[in-house]
Amino acid sequence: MKLLTHFMLIGALAIAGASHAQDYKRIASAGGDITEIIYGLGAGDRVIAVDSTSGYPAAVKDKAQIGYVRGLSAEGVLSIAPDLLIGADDMGPPNVIDNLRAANLDVAIAPLGQGGDRVVTKIKFVGETLGLQTRADELIADYSAKMAALADQVDALKTKPRVLFILSMRDGAPIVGGAETSANDIIELAGGVNVGEGFSGWKPMNSEALIAANPDVIVMSASHAENMGDDGAVLDRADIKLTNAGKAENLVKMDAMLLLGFGPRTPTAVAELMHHIHPHSH
């Protein structure tokens, strides 16, 4: 119960106050998390275009495309005549954002935030921007209640497995999630210990360090795992075969946006990851 008050307090703080919003009718959304929140608030019918990271819900597949969230072009966005471009904290590049604002397009960029609390911050931001504070309040309350219940389950766990998150491979070395990454946050929320917590950001891990880290579980996004080939491309590596995860062939693959996007589906992601890394606790 120790995190119940925390999540409920975060929710209460996030829904206090509101900012002026316009009645936007032609929204371009960049960032799968932001797009999911817009739909979660019931405003999907206002969305005319999305970026390539926006794949949920299925209705977004019928929307126009504006490219990758970090690599937008001013011409591409303006060509669809939106009245608002709203996006994730890393939407860019900055010069394109400046050009769009200079063209008198309203641009709203989400705050970053940390851990599971960032979802509440983003829901509040989208709700205020679109003038949907009441719906945002309801979504925040639902999210906070689900996360508090999951935190209760984590508190009751007897063990915390050591988890390695591999983002991709670069020059033969796995790029892994350290502290201050979305991977670290989701691992902690699911009751695991991130073996990369000793460094910050996404960095390559050499074989010696990987063997010494000795993860019990390896987690990857399903798309990156598929790009590498079959499971053997990971589990048959000489270094991984020497770890507990390798010996047990314990490789978990999940949808990247679900797992790392930190949107309204994060409680689902936490529950699914908990099921994978704590298979005997259910």
Rank of each mutant, 00 (worst) to 15 (best):
D83R: 02
A148L: 13
D98Q: 15
H278Q: 10
S52G: 08
S144E: 11
F262T: 05
F262C: 07
G172V: 12
P215Q: 09
D33W: 02
D98I: 11
I37H: 13
V107F: 09
G127M: 11
I27N: 11
A151Y: 08
S29T: 15
A179C: 04
H275Q: 14
D216C: 13
L132C: 06
P267R: 12
K122C: 13
F262R: 03
D230Y: 11
N244F: 01
I80H: 02
M1Q: 13
L100W: 12
S52C: 03
V176S: 11
D106A: 11
M257N: 01
A81Q: 10
M91K: 06
M228E: 06
K25L: 07
I97W: 02
L242T: 02
R265D: 03
A212Y: 03
I175Q: 09
I166T: 05
A49S: 15
D236V: 05
H278C: 11
S29W: 04
M274P: 10
V252P: 03
A81S: 13
F7Q: 09
P174E: 00
G40P: 04
A102M: 06
A156Y: 08
V120A: 15
L4M: 02
F262I: 08
A269C: 12
G31T: 13
P174W: 02
Y68H: 06
E180L: 07
P111K: 15
K63C: 00
N214S: 13
G263S: 02
L260K: 01
G32D: 07
G192T: 08
L167E: 01
M257Y: 00
L260M: 10
V119W: 02
R118P: 03
D255E: 04
T5I: 00
G192I: 02
A248C: 00
L85M: 06
P267H: 12
L85W: 03
D106T: 05
A64V: 11
S221H: 07
E180A: 14
M1G: 15
G92E: 10
L164A: 15
E208I: 10
N104L: 00
L273R: 04
A213Y: 00
N104M: 01
W202I: 02
K122T: 08
V219K: 01
D152A: 08
D90T: 13
L100I: 06
S73Q: 02
R170M: 10
N244L: 04
S54Y: 08
L78D: 02
E197T: 13
V195T: 14
V195S: 08
F125R: 09
L100T: 04
N104H: 12
L258Y: 02
R237Q: 13
S52E: 14
Y143E: 03
A222R: 04
M254C: 07
S223I: 00
T5W: 01
A149C: 09
T266P: 00
I27P: 01
A102Y: 00
K241S: 12
G131N: 14
P279N: 08
H275N: 15
I48W: 12
Q153V: 09
S182G: 03
P161Q: 05
E180S: 14
